[in-house]
Design a protein around this nucleic acid. Structure first.
Lengths: 210, 210
DNA sequence: GCCCGCTCTAAGCGCCCGCTCAGAATCCGG
DNA sequence: CCGGATTCTGAGCGGGCGCTTAGAGCGGGC
């Protein structure tokens, strides 16, 4: 497995929203993440978001033009974080198997540890407006490309044995993303444990020689 | 009739909502499935559902007490169908590997072919009221149990090699369920192809001797 | 042929939504 | 200690929501 914890580019893991300023805007955004993850974008009211941030409903509109802009900002930052995690792992050193295991375990760890954010990022895409959705779709293609690259390299190097590299990549991404749906903090596993378990299962899946 | 296709208990695959009567109630329910899958439960209005069914908004309330009852009915029938599919496969004949492959391919095929229904069934749980949610959660436990049983039997028979049967089961279910999220009718694969691909990947995942 | 019961519609009720705006509070350079 | 910019609040707008109600249309039993 990975050592203790590899550093992940693109932000501090303890303060994921440090780049959002001023502080009131950050408090609103964090409140929105919680509310969107709990109840979904459409079921969340601006009054609820403002309330969680300890402000009046009107305060929201000083920092964000609309409720949708909040979602767009969350989705943007979240996808950039996901891309940074996977790029780091895919660009790292080692065999394709080692890099794939690293990518899966970090990506899964993020989906588990930041599962509220991940839930919004992965499941509220359709609530985005046209413009932000296009931006996000482009980011997602880049995200996919990182994993596909490692899978292809593994196949070419004879490390993996898969009949359909694109299909395998899809399944791997799918497996990781779905962690955000089912992960519970009071459940059976810690984020690290799920990451390790899934890295192992994925190596099996691509027929990596062990 | 279906010859090559295995018959699946719990309803005809071409008319999935045949058990819903009268016809107007079925039309409303099908409209609700489409709308919920497209836009999500909370973003769907009763006017939209009624409009898709070619009726006035008030007509909905002759057949259903509330909008939530529509969701509950859809979720109930969908989960029963899913359970029937997996029970059939798990109770079938053959080695654990054959039964697991059958379970995964049928379950995935359903998630792909009926992806609008599956999307509602799998992603709108939190919109359910307390009572229906409890009922559905019980059904989901039974669904999980079918797959877990086959995995355990495979491990005991020495067919599979997994360090954590529960973890592997979770990953298998997760993989299948997420098909409803990403599957597109105009995409690269047919439901049958995804079913076959995924059955193969899952056998790898559990370390089945090939 | 009449009437009952079922199915449907037109109209609309009360509520809460996203969002606005006028003005109060606060901060800060000079 | 002042004055303008910035950040916030209380009140409330227009509108769409889930759902109700009164009554029209109509098919089947006697």
């Amino acid at each position: 497995m990975s050592t203790a914890e590899e550093t992940t580019a693109g932000g501090d893991e303890r303060q994921p929203w440090a780049e959002v300023t001023p502080e009131a805007a950050r408090r609103l955004l964090v409140a929105a993440v919680d509310a969107f993850a709990e109840r979904g974008y459409h079921a969340t009211t601006t009054r609820d978001i403002a309330g969680r941030a300890g402000m009046s409903p009107a305060a929201l509109y000083i920092h964000y033009k609309t409720k949708e802009e909040l979602l767009a900002r969350i989705s943007r930052i979240g996808h950039e974080k996901a891309l940074a995690i996977l790029r780091d792992a895919a660009d790292g050193e080692g065999t394709a198997a080692e890099r794939l295991a690293g990518a899966v375990s970090s990506f899964v760890r993020w989906h588990a540890a930041q599962h509220t954010t991940a839930r919004v990022v992965q499941y509220e895409l359709e609530a985005l407006g046209e413009d932000s959705r296009a931006e996000i779709v482009a980011l997602r293609k880049e995200v996919d490309a990182q994993v596909r690259r490692v899978v292809r390299e593994g196949v070419e190097a004879g490390e993996f044995e898969v009949p359909d590299a694109q299909g395998a990549t899809l399944a791997i991404m799918s497996l990781c993303i779905d962690v955000a749906r089912w992960f519970r903090v009071d459940g059976r596993w810690t984020p690290d444990e799920v990451g390790a378990l899934y890295a192992d299962l994925v190596l099996n899946m691509v027929g990596a020689k062990r």
